[in-house]
Amino acid sequence: MSGQGASRSIAPDLAGALLAVCLGAYAIYETKDMSDLGAVFPTAAGTLCILGGVALTLLAFKNRSRPSDLTLERPDWPRMVALSVVLLAWAVLLKPLGFIISSLVGMTAVVWLTWRGAATVKAVVVHAVALAILMVGFYSLMVFVLRIAVP
């Protein structure tokens, strides 16, 4: 963990540089099957990524004695991963389960992940009503006003 005034950790910069170089190398490798004009922009963007990654690495080592301007907090990884899974499942199940059921399940899961206090009966009822109002409101907007064909 690094913070303002703390000695600089170069790990975030090195991770960013590695990402940029890998992405750039892959982008350029893929241009082998493209036409000359079709390859111009991917090659340019890939080259920028690689050069940027190399420059970022050099600067990270050069500036490692300077205080860091990047404040990293330890994230709540289990909640983050669970939320990502919920959102991805919501997207995948949107068609098979339909808009209403998938959204109700998805929103309930998001509330559960956000919840930190005690779950009293009153709080649960209030949230259930709020979710129902949200669903009815957005469903009506989509179907009756905007005439979007929801699954």
Binding site: A20, A27, S35, P42, A45, G46, L48, C49, G52
Partner: peptide, 23 residues
Amino acid sequence: IGGAIGLLLACVGSAVVGGDVRY
């Protein structure tokens, strides 16, 4: 670098001219 990543994302799909299928 972020801008270059955005440019690469913009390259996904059929090329604007020529029709190369990319990424």
